[in-house]
Amino acid sequence: MLKAPLSRRVLGAHLGLVYLFLYGPIAVLVALSFNESGLPTAWTGFSVEWYGKMLANAAIRAAVVNTLIVAAFSTLIATAIGTLLALGMERLRSSAAMDAAIYMPMIIPDIVLAIALLSFFTALDFTLGLHSIIAAHAVFNIAFVCVVVRATLKHFDKSIVEASIDLGASESRTFLRITLPVIFPGVLSGALLAFTLSVDEFIIAYFTAGAGPSSTTFPMQIYSMIRFGVTPEINAVATIVLGVSFVLILVSQRLRRDEPL
C-alpha cells in the first residue's frame, strides 16, 4: 500500500508507540504484583506474597465464585439465544432494522442500561440478586454473540443445508448434523467473548445486584478495593484478571480466524 520506506518507518515507529501506550500500563501492574514492597517507586525484590494474600482473602474468593456463576449462566443464555438470533437474521431479506436493534445494547451507555434495569426490577418488585445480574448481562451478551455468529455465517455456504435436505435429512437433523457443527467455532468464539465481558462488567452488575455481600461480583470487589484504599494485593488481582481475559479473547479470536472484532 505504501511504497516509500521513510513513511513506512515513521508509521512503524508510531505503531510501536501505540502498543507501548496500550501495554505499558498493563506491564507496570504485572511487574508491581511481583514487587515485594508493592510500591510503584521502589523495587525491593521478587515475591509472590501478594498472590498469597489475594488467595487468602475470603471476600475476593466469594466474589469470584459469584462472578463465575453470573458469567456462566449469562453466557449460556446469550449463546443459545444469540445464535438463534443470528440464524434468524440470515433469513430476513433486509436486516437493517434488526441490525440497529442488535447494536443498541452494545452501544447504549452502561450507566443508562444499569439505571433502566434497576428501575425496571424495582418497579416489578423483583428481588435483586445474582439472577438479576444474569438477566442484565445476557442483554448485551446476546448482542455480542449474535454479531460474532453472524460474522461466521457470512462465510457459511448455505447450499450445504440444502444438500443435507436433498440427501434425505429433516430440518432438525440438518441443524444438528450440519449447521451447528459447521458454525460451532463461531458460536464458541461468541461464548468466550460473552463470558469475558460478563466477568469484567461492573456498573450494570453494581446496579442490579441488590444490597449485601451475597451478590457482590468480582469487579464490584475490585472497584471497592480501588476506591477505598488501594492495597498492593490489587496488582495481583489485576494480573490474574487481565491474564485470564487475554487468554479467553485470544482463543475466541483464534476460533474465528477472520477479521477481528
Binding site: Y23, P25, I26, L29, P40, L193, F202, P219, I226, I249
Partner: peptide, 19 residues
C-alpha cells in the same frame, strides 16, 4: 490492539492511577 479493549476496564483504569 483490540485485546486490551475486551479486558477489564476497571483494572485498565486503575493502572493509570498507579502511573
Amino acid at each position: 490492539v483490540m485485546l486490551p479493549f475486551w479486558s477489564n476496564y476497571l483494572i485498565r483504569t486503575y493502572a493509570w492511577i498507579v502511573l
